[in-house]
Amino acid sequence: MARRSTQAASEGTDKAKPVTSYDVAREAGVSQSAVSRYFTPGASVSARTRAKILKAVNKLGYQPNAIARSLITRRSSLVAVVVANLGFNPEFTSILGQSLSARGLNTLLFTLDHESDADHVIDQLWQYRVAGVVAAVTLPPRHVDMLSQREIPLVFVNRAYEEVPVNSVSCDQSEGERWLVDELCAAGHRRIAIVSGPEDSPVSRQRVSSAAERLANAGVKPVEIVVADFTYQGGREAMRKLAAGPARPDAIICANDMLAIGCMDEARHALGLRIPEDISIVGFDGSAPGQWASYDLVTIRQPTNLMVDAAIDMLMARIDDPQLITEKRVFSGELVRGASARLADT
């Protein structure tokens, strides 16, 4: 009786053990490397072998362990994506995650309240075996060097570096701001204000400086430049400040769409202004809320899908070959002619 009880306990323990790729290979009568290829996107597996493995997987209830596989192959499927919570287009993050998943990669997302907090992310990154990093924030040069020394590919989004060579994918911020300024000036606007994002945001700084420079070339000095958070509430507060000034603007250039939406709602609902008859408001990004009928925002739409594809292609090429030289790709945006501003031909 004691021996049968021991045997039963042993069988129960075996049944509780997780099924491994070795078990699948033995059941299917194939090599363990064939099982590994079966679960690797794009890997070559014959139809006959694939059918055997699938039958064994269904019979045994096997689920691949990505972490264990990365320890064996020394190649991770994790890509760290670092974004500033308040200052980055959320649609880009969503599309990036979907595109990485479609290529067999998983997203490890880091969100920061402010861009200046990015310094702390690297300390956390070392705790994970990541295949690469996509950063929509500015990292200190020493951390860029540390990632390079460890051969972890890094691609920046909308971040330009002069002092160190980096891989980057960007929308042409200066070109987009020139289009907006030219349209507003051609429509007769002369009292133009600018609503900036946080001072630690390089994207905001580039957009604001480009707009101010274009205005100067047109002989127009900004009525005022108001700094705000990259949020809806930040836009409302900025509109209140501009309205309380000595000379209310007849047009406002906002550093992103959410700021522009906040400005619009404050102007209409709190100040009783008509848009665009009394004041024109434009943004930048091409976010979905800006295109809702209530806003119909004039903005610059970033080519999100093209930028995502370029970032992933650039990253994967350097995962395969860390010695590739750095590369920068710049894409033009698209001027969206909405109803939030009086433009030259409207």
Rank of each mutant, 00 (worst) to 15 (best):
P276L: 11
P276S: 15
P276C: 14
P276V: 05
D278K: 08
D278T: 10
D278E: 10
D278W: 09
I279E: 07
I279H: 13
I279T: 05
I279Q: 13
S280T: 07
S280N: 04
S280P: 02
I281M: 07
I281G: 01
I281H: 06
V282G: 06
V282D: 07
V282R: 10
G283Y: 01
G283F: 03
F284E: 04
F284T: 00
D285Q: 12
D285G: 12
G286F: 10
G286I: 07
S287L: 12
S287D: 15
S287V: 14
A288M: 11
A288V: 11
A288D: 10
P289F: 06
G290Q: 11
G290V: 06
G290D: 09
W292H: 14
W292D: 15
A293C: 11
S294M: 15
Y295I: 14
D296C: 09
D296W: 05
L297E: 10
L297K: 14
L297A: 12
V298R: 08
V298G: 06
T299L: 08
T299M: 06
I300K: 09
I300T: 09
R301N: 08
R301P: 07
R301V: 05
Q302I: 06
P303T: 02
T304F: 05
T304M: 06
T304Y: 03
T304N: 09
T304P: 00
T304S: 00
N305E: 09
N305T: 06
N305A: 10
L306D: 07
L306C: 05
M307V: 02
M307P: 02
V308P: 01
D309Y: 02
D309I: 00
D309M: 04
A310K: 00
A311D: 00
A311G: 01
A311E: 00
A311V: 01
A311I: 00
I312S: 02
I312R: 04
D313N: 15
D313E: 13
M314Y: 09
M314C: 07
M314H: 04
L315D: 02
L315M: 10
L315K: 00
M316W: 06
M316F: 11
M316V: 15
R318T: 12
I319S: 00
I319R: 08
D321Y: 07
P322R: 12
Q323I: 06
Q323A: 15
Q323P: 04
L324V: 08
L324E: 14
L324Q: 15
I325D: 13
I325Y: 07
I325W: 06
I325V: 09
T326A: 10
T326C: 10
E327F: 11
K328R: 15
R329W: 02
R329V: 05
V330W: 07
V330E: 09
F331M: 14
S332G: 13
S332E: 11
G333P: 08
G333V: 02
G333K: 03
